[in-house]
Simulated assay, not measured.
Amino acid sequence: MDHLKGKVAIVTGVSRLKGIGAAICKELADSGYHIFFTYWTEYDKKMPWSIEIDEPVKLKEELIKKGIKVSFMELDLTQHDAHEQLLNKVSEQLGSPDILINNAAYSTNNDFSNLTAEELDKHYMVNVRATTLLSSRFAQRFDKKSGGRIVNITSGQFQGPMPGELAYATTKGAVDALTITLSAELAPLGITVNALNPGPTDTGWMTEEIKNELKPMFPFGRIGKPRDVAKTIKFLVSDEADWITGQIIHSEGGFKR
């Protein structure tokens, strides 16, 4: 793994050990990347899945055992300067980053009948504003000739409607648009930009009823796992994927809505 020596990956939204963010961190760490991840426990504590307060620390300890450098910070991505706070901390502790995985997301259930301006703003601030500003500033600071990678996690909203998730679908749709345009702007800098839709993924939020409802929609007969997402991202950030950019990749096991 000599070609990975010193490569630094940022992964946002890594609060829970069962989550997609944690799986991404583990997969990249196994490949030799140094990891900097963010988390925001206030959000996860309000969600049905909740969170144990020490989960980020446990993840850091697990990653360190893999022989790579690891750092993290708790960060509220709704803050106007969150992107500067994060990139400053990464540079200070691990050096200039090579990879940015925009995994953090804000999501609550709502539809046309109960959507409020406040709730829409919360979705926008995390899913669109933070992702756009962090990606832009990452690119502005990128000081290498090639090998830069940005991967945005999206949700397949253009694969079909998402009733009951109006704000989430709207803002994730903006992430797809961002990916396509930003990829053209950043290619001359040696940075690829792609988005990944993992489809329904069992990160601990699914009840048995939901699992039984979803399973027939997967041709492989099982529901997506966090490592399925992580393995695809490991490829997208590798040297082998340096000719792939501006793509919305639906890595969801043939899921049929």
Rank of each mutant, 00 (worst) to 15 (best):
V126Q: 12
D121V: 05
V128Q: 15
T131G: 09
N103K: 13
N103Q: 15
A105Y: 08
L133V: 07
P97D: 03
I101T: 04
D111R: 01
A130E: 14
V126I: 15
L115C: 01
A130K: 10
L115Y: 01
T116G: 02
V126P: 11
N110T: 02
K122I: 04
N110I: 00
V126M: 08
G95M: 12
S107T: 04
I99C: 02
K122R: 13
N109Y: 06
A117F: 02
F112A: 04
L134N: 08
L120R: 02
L94N: 03
G95K: 13
N127R: 05
T108G: 01
N110Q: 03
I101N: 07
M125H: 09
A105L: 08
E118I: 01
L94G: 04
A130Y: 06
Y124C: 14
A104S: 15
T132F: 15
M125V: 04
S96I: 05
A117W: 00
T131I: 12
V126F: 15
I101V: 06
V126K: 07
G95H: 13
N127T: 14
I99R: 07
A130D: 09
T132V: 14
T108V: 04
S96E: 09
S113T: 09
D111Y: 01
T108A: 01
T132A: 15
N109K: 01
Y124L: 13
I99Y: 04
Y106L: 05
E119V: 08
K122W: 05
H123A: 13
S113P: 00
H123D: 15
Y106S: 13
I101E: 04
A104M: 06
L120C: 06
E119M: 02
R129P: 09
Y106V: 07
I99V: 10
S107W: 08
V128P: 02
G95V: 07
I101R: 05
V128N: 11
N110F: 01
N114D: 09
E118W: 00
E118P: 02
Y106K: 02
N109W: 03
A117L: 03
